[in-house]
Design a protein around this nucleic acid. Structure first.
Lengths: 214, 214, 214, 214
DNA sequence: GATGAATGAGCTTTCATTCAT
DNA sequence: AATGAATGAAAGCTCATTCAT
């Protein structure tokens, strides 16, 4: 080889902040997993986005699955951190629920990939049993977060009789997951805000007009 | 060779009802697409489920995409046929909505793969642009079905002012897709019935107790 | 099955002249083999062109290879029949050669697939050893046809000394195969006629001007 | 497992000269494409010849098509480089033409696959539209090379009147492609040299004896 | 004589992963 | 820490061929 030829250097590049690459890796992986799903997100796509080669991914994560788990853990941390912060100043179930919806609307605008991830994770769990196992423990946090809010609402008598904690939890689950899917699919921020307001009305019992007349 | 292995014969198999294989193909494809999604559903998986070879699939459908479309069209037909039948005897929005929720609960019990398909199709559309194109016209039917119900409700004054047809539509979309996802994930029929009842309450404005006091 | 349903009849269609299908089969096969080659010519393509199914081909020929051989045999018969007829009224090598070129130009206009086949057969022989074997005996006729013309020219002293029969034969082979390839690729009939005239000039020693002066 | 089977190791092979595999890949591909054509040259055949797996081909070329193009570009470069060098010292058309024929004979002896490739490329272009597109610009060089020689010959008055540049070009095309096909098929070096000498005679107007007498 | 369902082998291509350097 | 050459398994798909009807 021509010794004068400028070759890309092998080995560790000196100008890269250690730890930096790892962060970028998780960031780009999250975006891709959220946007196009686990299968369609190839190592090459992630590596190209980060500016490394596919082999380098394996310095940080032992497998694609582990990268997915790590990305999800981060998302989960941030989303539920935000949600927990959002409810902390509210005493009533109604107030907490409103705050959660608002916060979800915020997140889906500022960090769409977070919502995309949350929406997709259930489906990926079904597709890939090996993911399901690792995901299960992580997902527990979501479950507990809502569980406590719902149980408290029931014990405080904030919801009608006949609605148990389980049922309330499931209903909220339906609304939240539906809203997340909606926010993932619909890019119009105004429509997202409107539907959130509508859902608040719904919870407040004000959607149908003059129910007494019926 | 394993002498116990039953070697399939070449040529036309004796005594196979024509048309039967095609039906089984769509059936098994639907189940798999619903359960594990488009990517994870390999031709081999489908073929094995039907009891044919992967090549034989192409005797019936020119590509995997077309098989997906065909399966979806069937599901769409049956689900929206059922939903349209369910609302036809109701005059009020409230009644229609209740019927839709009930019918969805029925379907998710009797034909779980139908619901799984409907849940997944939006995500697959995003992941696979080539699917999106063919799916678009089919999905129109869903959109129109809800659109009419919502517009009618607004024009009849059945919903509070401030709730436009668009917002109502989006809200219903949130609830229905959330419920579908829930039904897809939760196998407990009782919980499904309960959450449907809860959602009806919700619509009737009776979830939060004593709203008047607020 | 609904007995009233009009089904396509199975079995032998009564309105088809026996022998007719076989002819059409060879005809369409010839066209396709000539135009797109052996590999690209699928049984389906041939069957569709004839209006039958791929399975039916096997009633007439035991394999694709045999269909190819049959098509080639026909082409060979017609082309060399025409060439033999073309030379029969000429005594001189020069006259025969001219007639051959003219006849090739005619054929490439009236039946382009014939020339395409002749051009392609050598290449296919190399690609497919199993074809080569059967083709060999057929191709003998071509060889003998030119062989005799060349030997006669040499023995009659019609060509310069130093040009043996073998060399003359090879030269003609070069010109004829080159012309065939040219005719196969160039669709302009005028250019084909012109190049044939040019080649006649060439043989007559009149291309380069004033060779004596050099 | 056969204990004698040498299992290839995963990962980067030790002591493989970088760039070496790529060269071998093009080399073996060229040989195979030349000998058995595009369709019959499977990735497996190429990979086996090089000693890698089929997947590794895609480390170097994004598709089989691109491998073909790369192989052809190299052949084209070498063949037309040689031909251009061969004509540069000749002033007359006659001299240039002789040199071209000699050079073609040389190449067909030293690098038979080069000629095979040049012969085959026209046919492959017809069969595979996707190849034709990329090949078109490459083939331009061939066309221009002969075009200039022919136009110059005509403008210098080196050929008889009535022979236009176009006709001369087509005639040379016929002879060169015919010779190439001949060289590709006939392995006898002596016969190749003889036919080249014969074609030179032909051009010099000396094949038919005593044409003046006629 | 012809259909149409089906096979089995093989094709191009993709991809997660490995590992010498 | 990172590269890049390579693997092996599997994917979607095509095709010649077979054969009960």
């Amino acid at each position: 080889m021509n010794p004068l030829a400028v070759r890309k250097k092998l080995g560790r590049p000196c100008s890269v902040d250690p730890g930096e690459t790892r962060k970028r890796l998780i960031l780009e992986a999250r975006r891709l997993f959220a946007e196009i799903g686990y299968d369609a997100t190839t190592n090459r796509l992630v590596a190209d986005a980060v500016g490394i080669t596919t082999g380098a991914i394996y310095h940080y994560f032992p497998s694609k699955k582990d990268l997915y788990i790590a990305a999800f853990a981060e998302v989960q941390d941030m989303v539920y951190g935000a949600l927990e912060a959002a409810v902390v100043n509210h005493d009533t179930f109604s107030g907490k629920f409103s705050s959660i919806l608002d916060e979800l609307a915020n997140i889906s605008t500022s960090e769409p990939s977070f919502i995309g991830f949350v929406v997709g994770v259930a489906a990926e769990s079904q597709r890939h049993p090996e993911l399901a196992q690792d995901l299960k423990s992580l997902r527990m946090r979501t479950v507990m977060f809502l569980h406590e809010i719902c149980e408290e609402a029931v014990s405080k008598g904030e919801v009608n009789e006949g609605i148990t904690g389980q049922v309330l939890h499931d209903m909220i689950d339906v609304v939240i997951s539906g809203l997340s899917r909606f926010s993932h699919v619909v890019n119009d921020a105004q429509r997202r805000r409107d539907v959130v307001e509508g859902l608040k009305y719904l919870m407040a019992g004000s959607v149908l007009s003059a129910p007494a007349v019926r």
